[in-house]
Write a protein that binds this DNA or RNA. Structure first.
Lengths: 342, 342
DNA sequence: CTGTTAGCGCGTTCAA
DNA sequence: TTGAACGCGCTAACAG
């Protein structure tokens, strides 16, 4: 029908059929030349490659995904890019994916709306990813249902879970919070505060871990526990430490649940003439790149973000391709890095 | 044929046809219910929505893109995420895209291989994006051909070009480099160095702008001009300023082409006991968030990255949808932010 | 090593 | 307001 033809010519894109006609073979041969070069005679192969280049042919992933039910794409759901925590994870993911010839789809969910993860997932599931990388282990029921319904292989990152059904690569945020509290107690601090923002489940678990140990020591004081929902940032850290110091002048240490907050806190202390760590010890979290290079280098907890990205992706690809894996949960741990601030 | 049926059931995904059967209508009605709710009776619409939710139906973008030649997806090509420059751009892009119900595909090209942009573009073009956002204006011939061949609307970001055929939103890197040189000269500096890394075209243009003005003043000294191909980072900045000071102890100012380098430079100066700005003035570039909060707050050039993301996306969407635009090139300028370091 | 046939899930066109 | 037929560009399954 004429009307149909006009639609085809409307897109204007060069298709496999165009290449095939030009070379004088059938489309399937062109298809094979790209997917399984070994199954096509060398000279045909090179002619096909040459003609494809000349014509500017770009294979349509949409069509390929439809026909093969494989997209060679994995989807990564990330809360945010504005502090570098997840950028490092993405770098790790991308390295492994590049090597395996997979594409990476990034969906940024944000911390704000509770249903954002569900909406972003739904929107991106349409690209028919072969697998999903999720941040954290606290997905909503709706998200779980959607993933299970599609039967999509999934690996969780950046936290720790006891659930038997989850595949994850991360570390225990709760344990990290406990470690910080013990460290500070071990250094003789007794009036230990907690500063957190954003209040995602992972930050909260760090706080809880810290609170737990302090409470056991009989040293937990809710008046020193500051948690605000705002996004974490350097200026916010400055503001919060100011507030803490005003409402509890005898506070002698603080666990700040994110390094950018902690950087701001240390900055504010120096503005205000509060000696760090003598008068106030500050311990951050994540060991962002800049933290070692602050005026007062930050004592902080280093998290293996890059490795988490790599290992989680390896695990996911193995799962997708049916390769046996030695473990389905990988705890990569954390380490307390002692520098000047605490 | 039986073999085909088995393939269909193999994917396991819920399709439009499944929803249609369950509701008791034809597939096209389900399609319309989502794309043009007004064209379906209200009660049918709500039943379709309900059944879709219950069945866990997720529309396939792949199929949709194939059938309609529209993907509601735009592709953003970004060199890197590891310093926050492009993260801010992405935030701007995403805001506008979210409001217009488009999806964002991010491709990270890296600075290293010269053909990476071409490869990433080719790989991602397969998703049939409706438009492309490119970083910079210096694409290779291959990239230009590929885009032109597909007839894809494109907007360039983060630089300035005199070419009539380019749509762009950015600022002049060359002019920014000149402005820094003039500023430093105006403050009485005479032995002005240049430090740059990464050496992407935009950094180089900043350097060139600076060099140009210094040369006009008869004050350009190649011995003060340090350009290395490594990725920019805080430690690298520390290293480079050290080198500069060693080979030219009388250097009294330096334009550092990236804020993270500049932060490292200032840090190193304080380690080494070099007074900033009295002995050495330091001017950075981009005004990253942390730059205002360093021990010596950075004098730097603020670039409107978030706005560039927004405006470039607006322009691109207008172009895609055929809305007339007032301009196809938008210079958003830059501003020199004077703080303590210079 | 190469070709034929059919259909992936959806949207366009035309008809009712 | 709803439906039938067709094809978007590609690949699986067979055959040759």
């Amino acid at each position: 029908m004429q009307t149909r033809k006009s639609r085809a010519s409307f897109t204007g894109r060069v298709t496999m059929a165009d290449v095939a006609k030009e070379v004088g073979v059938s489309a399937i041969t062109v298809s094979r030349a790209f997917r399984a070069p070994g199954k096509v005679s060398p000279e045909l192969h090179s002619r096909i490659v040459e003609v494809s280049r000349r014509l500017g042919y770009v294979p349509s992933r949409a069509a390929s995904a439809l026909a093969s039910a494989r997209s060679m794409t994995i989807l990564a759901l990330i809360p945010s890019l504005t502090n570098n925590v997840f950028v490092d994870v993405l770098v790790g993911i991308k390295e492994v994916l590049d090597a395996a010839d997979y594409q990476m789809l990034i969906a940024i969910t944000g911390y704000d709306q509770p249903d954002a993860e569900e909406r972003m997932l739904r929107a991106h599931l349409g690209y028919v990813p072969d697998g999903i990388l999720l941040t954290g282990v606290d997905q909503s029921e709706a998200v779980r249902t959607m993933i299970d319904g599609q039967g999509l292989p999934t690996v969780h990152m950046m936290d720790h879970s006891d659930r038997e059904d989850l595949w994850w690569v991360g570390y225990s945020n709760a344990e990290a919070g406990r470690a910080v509290a013990r460290y500070l107690l071990g250094r003789g601090r007794r009036r230990i505060g907690i500063i957190a923002s954003q209040l995602d489940p992972r930050s909260l678990r760090r706080c809880e871990g810290c609170r737990e140990v302090l409470a056991e020591a009989g040293l937990y004081d809710p008046g020193l526990d500051l948690r605000v929902p705002d996004h974490s940032s350097i200026p916010l850290g400055a503001e919060l430490v100011e507030r803490l110091l005003n409402q509890a002048p005898d506070c002698d240490a603080v666990f700040v649940c994110n390094d950018d907050l902690a950087q701001g806190a240390v900055f504010q202390c120096s503005q205000r003439g509060v000696a760090v760590p003598d008068r106030l010890a500050v311990v951050g979290f994540h060991d962002l790149n800049a933290s070692a290079w602050a005026s007062t280098p930050l004592t902080t907890v280093r998290t293996p973000r890059y490795q988490i990205g790599r290992e989680a992706t390896r695990l996911l690809l193995a799962r997708i391709e049916g390769t046996p894996t030695s473990a389905r949960r990988i705890d990569l741990g954390f380490s307390l890095v002692r520098r000047a601030s605490g």
